[in-house]
Amino acid sequence: MDLQGKIAVVTGVSKGIGLSTVEALLEKGAIVAGWGRTKPALEHQDFHFFECDVRYPDSVQNAFDQTLSRLGVHIAVLVNNAGLGIAGKLDEQSIDDWQTMFETNVNGVFYCTRLVLPEMKEQGEGHIINISSIAGTTGIEEMSGYCGSKHAVRGISQSLYKEVRNYGIKVTCIYPGSVNTNFFDNFENITSRENMMRPEDIASTIVHALESHPNYHHVDIEVRPLMPKGRIQK
């Protein structure tokens, strides 16, 4: 896809992967609608922020309606990036924390995607990027809620691409390992953040997938830091 002049929606844009993705898309000439709870410190003539909490369908609908009103109806790209993780043993995790993860990480993908698909089908073009996690491919102790939500993103993505591929729409699911973002701010015993990937690394992968040939489809992309524990000392 040639991103020049295309309308792209990115969720969770206040910082981290979302903000880096917005910046990368702007560099490619896209017009970007950022949906999030907090406006990022970014000023650009082609960046438009719309307040949105993806946990709530009414909030998503409002952001979608405002986006169409201001930017136009032909949304070509959706990056479902908004997400969060809360650690805890399953029998000790609060119901509120469990529901917050699933409402954000899973329901948010549904609420956003269902709105952009009809026009993508009509145009015969579109690309949906879902940000899952390595946690969506395995189990991690004391992260059952987060892993469960990211496994759900994987299942949604793999089902959806089969539904929409013959309309010319791509669905790509990305599974990052550790990325140096605020995701880890509330986790104890995180000591090697300098060895994590950078948000801009994930953004570059997103752009690479978006710019691929129309008949070339990245379905699943797993990315990890090369040396998560640092270089071996000789």
Score class of each variant (00 low, 15 high):
residue 1 M to C: 12
residue 4 Q to D: 13
residue 7 I to E: 11
residue 9 V to D: 03
residue 13 V to L: 07
residue 13 V to P: 05
residue 14 S to W: 12
residue 15 K to Y: 11
residue 17 I to V: 13
residue 18 G to L: 03
residue 20 S to R: 14
residue 23 E to R: 14
residue 24 A to L: 06
residue 28 K to G: 09
residue 31 I to E: 13
residue 32 V to W: 00
residue 35 W to F: 13
residue 35 W to K: 12
residue 36 G to V: 01
residue 37 R to G: 03
residue 40 P to T: 01
residue 43 E to C: 07
residue 44 H to S: 12
residue 45 Q to P: 06
residue 46 D to A: 12
residue 47 F to I: 02
residue 50 F to W: 07
residue 51 E to W: 07
residue 56 Y to D: 15
residue 57 P to L: 09
residue 59 S to H: 07
residue 61 Q to H: 12
residue 61 Q to P: 04
residue 63 A to P: 03
residue 69 S to N: 10
residue 69 S to K: 08
residue 70 R to I: 12
residue 73 V to P: 02
residue 74 H to P: 01
residue 74 H to Q: 11
residue 75 I to L: 11
residue 76 A to G: 06
residue 81 N to V: 09
residue 81 N to S: 14
residue 83 G to K: 03
residue 83 G to D: 06
residue 84 L to N: 09
residue 85 G to H: 02
residue 90 L to W: 13
residue 93 Q to P: 00
residue 94 S to I: 08
residue 96 D to Y: 10
residue 98 W to L: 12
residue 101 M to H: 09
residue 109 V to I: 14
residue 109 V to P: 12
residue 110 F to I: 15
residue 111 Y to M: 05
residue 112 C to S: 14
residue 113 T to P: 08
residue 116 V to D: 08
residue 116 V to Q: 04
residue 116 V to R: 05
residue 125 E to Q: 14
residue 126 G to Q: 04
residue 130 N to M: 01
residue 134 I to F: 07
residue 136 G to S: 02
residue 139 G to W: 09
residue 139 G to D: 05
residue 140 I to V: 15
residue 144 S to V: 06
residue 144 S to E: 04
residue 146 Y to Q: 01
residue 147 C to M: 01
residue 148 G to Q: 00
residue 148 G to P: 01
residue 151 H to A: 08
residue 152 A to F: 03
residue 157 S to G: 11
residue 162 K to Y: 10
residue 162 K to W: 11
residue 162 K to C: 08
residue 163 E to Q: 06
residue 166 N to I: 00
residue 170 K to N: 09
residue 171 V to G: 09
residue 171 V to K: 10
residue 172 T to Y: 09
residue 172 T to M: 02
residue 175 Y to E: 01
residue 176 P to A: 06
residue 177 G to H: 00
residue 178 S to D: 13
residue 179 V to A: 01
residue 180 N to C: 00
residue 183 F to A: 02
residue 183 F to T: 00
residue 185 D to G: 04
residue 186 N to G: 12
residue 188 E to Q: 08
residue 201 D to Y: 05
residue 201 D to S: 09
residue 203 A to V: 03
residue 205 T to F: 15
residue 206 I to D: 03
residue 207 V to D: 07
residue 209 A to Y: 05
residue 210 L to A: 08
residue 211 E to A: 07
residue 211 E to N: 05
residue 211 E to D: 08
residue 212 S to P: 02
residue 213 H to G: 03
residue 213 H to W: 05
residue 214 P to W: 02
residue 215 N to L: 10
residue 215 N to Y: 13
residue 217 H to W: 10
residue 218 H to K: 13
residue 218 H to Y: 15
residue 218 H to M: 15
residue 219 V to F: 14
residue 221 I to P: 01
residue 221 I to G: 00
residue 223 V to M: 06
residue 224 R to S: 15
residue 225 P to I: 03
residue 226 L to I: 14
residue 227 M to H: 14
residue 229 K to Q: 14
residue 233 Q to R: 15
residue 233 Q to T: 15
